[in-house]
Design a protein around this nucleic acid. Structure first.
Lengths: 228, 228
DNA sequence: TTTAGTATTTGAACATGTTCAATATTGGAC
DNA sequence: GTCCAATATTGAACATGTTCAAATACTAAA
């Protein structure tokens, strides 16, 4: 059901996507032209545009697939892991693992970050569904762990943002196997979970609570609704 | 000395820049073509490329000017302000003030964020000088206030990053006068300065110190050198 | 003033992302 | 099996960022 029984169109679309990714990986995003892609996929240039509204949209389609795979992977890996730190680690590292060969063209995802109205802007309306899916993964990772109700709302969004930053860092990370990114992710998660534990410790809670309340108020004022 | 006595080339370059900005402001960055700019500036298309390597480079040149103006403005405004919170507020709000009419094309600055090798990438090698200048402004704001030696190194970079995020938020902020961005900046600065005060309070310092040390170690491991 | 070299300017040509009208193919209704 | 509407495919045309060889203007040395 997964790769068989596709209509002709679905098959063509898949071929174009696959061919494009191969070229992006081998030569890079910029230098690969739509004509290259079409030629390699043995279709006319226009065909690529019948299935993908733009060159960047091909990368977006790839990233859709990444999200699906990540959701699957996370479902598997979260099984049996109970601690928050461990669960978040699984989410982050598995994401990097999925992306590991594609740093070369991943940057295309960020091309329209500064363009609120562009359908492919990471922060724009057009990416709402994507964003929600990604946030949902973090919600799942948090679910069942011991965090306050307020944090339960805020954390998934914060983690999604952190995870975006991580991908950006990952793109810039030239160390072997991008170990720096992995280490940084671990460091940040260590820190984060330690801070979260603080908020649930009865000893310091009265001390930390006002901060938390202030942050939430501030974010609400800034337009964050908390809804998915 | 500032606008007079320019060579012919300098004058042409200035005209092209000014004309481009006017068009960007009036119609937007995307819809304004290089031919539009050249025509409006009464030069040939190639002239624009004689002075600016790309369309985005025009925005980069604009942003250079912004940085210079900001540095000037900050120098004026910091005079007489002693408190850290107040000083940082002056830096952030004056930056927004300078950018206020240009949200429409400011997004072009972020276009190559995901492209480490592009000369115009905010995080790339090519923007090193720009970055240093910007960080220096935050250093200046911190100078003379009461923060620990360790923080004095880290803070300017952290603030630069926060300030980048603020500009991004600003671009997306459709509220009247972008009050949301201003409020968010204030909220974040309140929070930040409160946290910094914590680190200098003798009471909680032993409690907070390990965190600070851990963060610094983590960032150093991630490749942050602290140098400007 | 002449001249040689440099800086500036030109506009056509080019590359590539994208659109589109025309054509071909497909799959289901009958 | 035939026909039709929907789907898919084609490739030339277009728009725009960018390059470049040629022409022109400028400057300083002789």
């Amino acid at each position: 059901m997964r790769t068989i029984n596709k209509s002709a169109g679905e098959r063509t679309k898949a071929v174009i996507l696959q061919t494009a990714l191969e070229l992006f990986r081998r030569r890079g995003f910029e230098v690969t032209t739509m004509r290259d892609i079409a030629r390699s996929a043995k279709v006319a240039t226009g065909a690529a545009y019948y299935y993908f509204p733009s060159k960047e949209a091909i990368v977006a389609a790839y990233y859709d697939r990444v999200q699906r795979r990540h959701a699957e992977q996370v479902r598997v890996e979260l099984n049996g892991r109970a601690g928050l730190r461990e669960r978040l680690g699984a989410v982050m590292h598995s994401k990097l693992e999925i992306l590991k060969d594609d740093r070369m063209f991943l940057g295309a995802l960020f091309r329209y970050t500064g363009d609120p109205d562009h359908p492919l802007s990471v922060f724009g309306k057009g990416a709402h569904a994507q964003r929600s899916q990604s946030v949902a993964i973090f919600q799942e990772a948090i679910a069942g762990t011991n965090v306050s109700e307020e944090l339960r709302q805020l954390l998934p969004w914060a983690l999604w943002l952190v995870h975006l930053g991580m991908i950006l860092f990952f793109i810039y990370d030239e160390t072997e196997g991008q170990q720096r990114t992995h280490k940084l992710a671990d460091g940040i998660l260590d820190l984060l979970t330690q801070l979260i534990e603080l908020t649930s410790s009865a000893l310091v809670r009265p001390f930390v609570q006002p901060f938390q309340t202030k942050i939430l108020g501030m974010l609400r004022e800034a337009g964050w609704t908390g809804g998915i």
